[in-house]
């Protein structure tokens, strides 16, 4: 028998209506239909979700860890990008 691994897929689950899909893990499957079935069996056994996305891992373009400094460090000294410079009027609970 030939031993060949099936392609890898990334699984995203939306746990409740209104929330975002979140990455929960990966699995092996031959195609999208099988990935969907496997995602249901592996990641939705305990009522975790109301919606599933599956994406072939190869289709995801990830940032290079060696680019970490150039990508993320420049934001370090730009604290004015955080919305912390506003006075919240009295009586406003949520903004």
């Amino acid at each position: 028998m030939t031993e060949r691994e099936l392609p890898l897929w990334e699984v995203f689950i939306r746990s409740r209506t209104g929330l975002n899909h979140r990455h929960v893990g990966s699995l092996h499957a031959a195609d999208a239909a099988m990935a969907m079935q496997n995602a249901r069996d592996l990641y939705c056994r305990r009522q975790e979700g109301v919606s599933i996305w599956v994406v072939e891992s190869g289709l995801i373009h990830a940032s290079d860890p060696s680019d970490k400094e150039s990508l993320f460090d420049p934001a370090e000294d730009k604290i004015y990008r955080h919305p912390t410079f506003y006075d919240v009027p009295d009586g406003v609970e949520n903004i």
């Binding site: 092996h28 496997n38 069996d41 592996l42 056994r45």
Partner: peptide
């Protein structure tokens, strides 16, 4: 034959 199918069969 594979972990994913193992779970499916057990389910």
């Amino acid at each position: 034959p594979m972990l994913e199918e193992e779970m499916a069969l057990a389910n």
